[in-house]
């Protein structure tokens, strides 16, 4: 009989106030040491960080925490959600991250976010540098021009899970291991109706930070930007253009990887992440 393997990840719920309403937030964590708060992509959840949460090379010195945004994964929408549409704004996104960090009493954590998480990482670097030890933006850019009609992501004539998956599937790098590629796509199939679309409001409209990049002071909080070569939502050119406006930002382009490096190819990604974490740990 095959023996079960219990992963070293603990999942718990917390209740907290956000925007004047009670929220039930799910988070997972593993490891000890410097807190590393991980922020998932639009329309997905914290399972994207399963490779990092399971990697002893990371968890030896870092307490890795991945929480599901409200409305995502195992975090519930607030009571009364049925009376409105979900739409993520820069202010709400910043607030929930800071609220979670304070609720867990994290001492100057490292924040690492991907895609929308990579965008909010820039906002955090600009507005809350003193509260973070370092910031890591994955697939990070200052703005993305809309290139398809997101109305189709929440439309009664189109299956939401299927279309969100089809959008996400193309953003995975071509050499990603099949199991991780389809796990990544599966997370998109499980998002609630309109949630991916609501996140993209932040990504493509409200979160535009192009004209404020020069306010980021990397001497207060180091900023690392890592981008997969095959991402066409946030391309390497987009990240390089962003970094060019932020003195002191460190950029790494990851060959072969796509828009979901930590989920589509955890081993390939962690090879790029470890030197960054080592540098942060030795600062």
């Amino acid at each position: 009989m095959m023996r079960a393997t219990i992963e070293p990840i603990t999942g718990r719920y917390m209740r907290l106030d956000h925007k004047g309403r009670e929220h039930r937030i799910y988070f997972e964590e593993a490891g000890q040491g410097i807190p590393l708060v991980c922020l998932h992509t639009a329309g997905s959840d914290g399972r994207q960080f399963r490779g990092i949460l399971n990697d002893p090379r990371v968890t030896r010195d870092f307490r890795v925490i991945a929480f599901d945004l409200p409305w995502h994964g195992k975090s519930s929408p607030p009571a009364g959600w049925q009376d409105g549409d979900y739409q993520l704004t820069s202010a709400d996104y910043t607030d929930i991250i800071l609220t979670v960090c304070r609720a867990l009493e994290l001492d100057r954590p490292v924040a690492m976010g991907c895609s929308i998480g990579g965008r909010i990482a820039l906002h955090l670097a600009m507005e809350h540098a003193g509260e973070f030890r370092a910031i890591i933006g994955l697939q990070s850019s200052a703005h993305v021009h809309p290139y398809y009609d997101t109305t189709w992501l929440h439309h009664p004539d189109v299956n939401g899970g299927e279309v969100c998956a089809a959008i996400a599937a193309g953003l995975v790098g071509p050499n990603a291991p099949d199991a991780h590629r389809w796990e990544t796509v599966w997370h998109y199939m499980q998002g609630g109706p309109g949630i991916f679309k609501g996140d993209l409001y932040f990504y493509k409209v409200d979160g535009d930070i192009r004209h404020r990049l020069s306010e980021i002071d990397t001497s207060r909080c180091p900023l690392y930007l890592l981008t997969g070569e095959y991402d066409y939502s946030c391309s390497p050119a987009d990240t390089l253009e962003t970094a060019a406006c932020i003195p002191g930002a460190t950029v790494s382009i990851m060959p072969g990887l796509g828009h979901f490096p930590m989920s589509e190819d955890p081993d390939g990604f962690i090879a790029h992440l470890l030197p960054v974490l080592s540098e942060i740990a030795h600062r």
Binding site: Y147, W152, V158, E162, A166, I167, A169, Y232, S233
Partner: peptide
Amino acid sequence: DLFALLRRGELTLSGNLQPFMANLL
């Protein structure tokens, strides 16, 4: 990917896009 071509402006879509989006994958 087709949407990579769309993003670059290389691909143009036309007609009734409901069946296209409903069967995108």
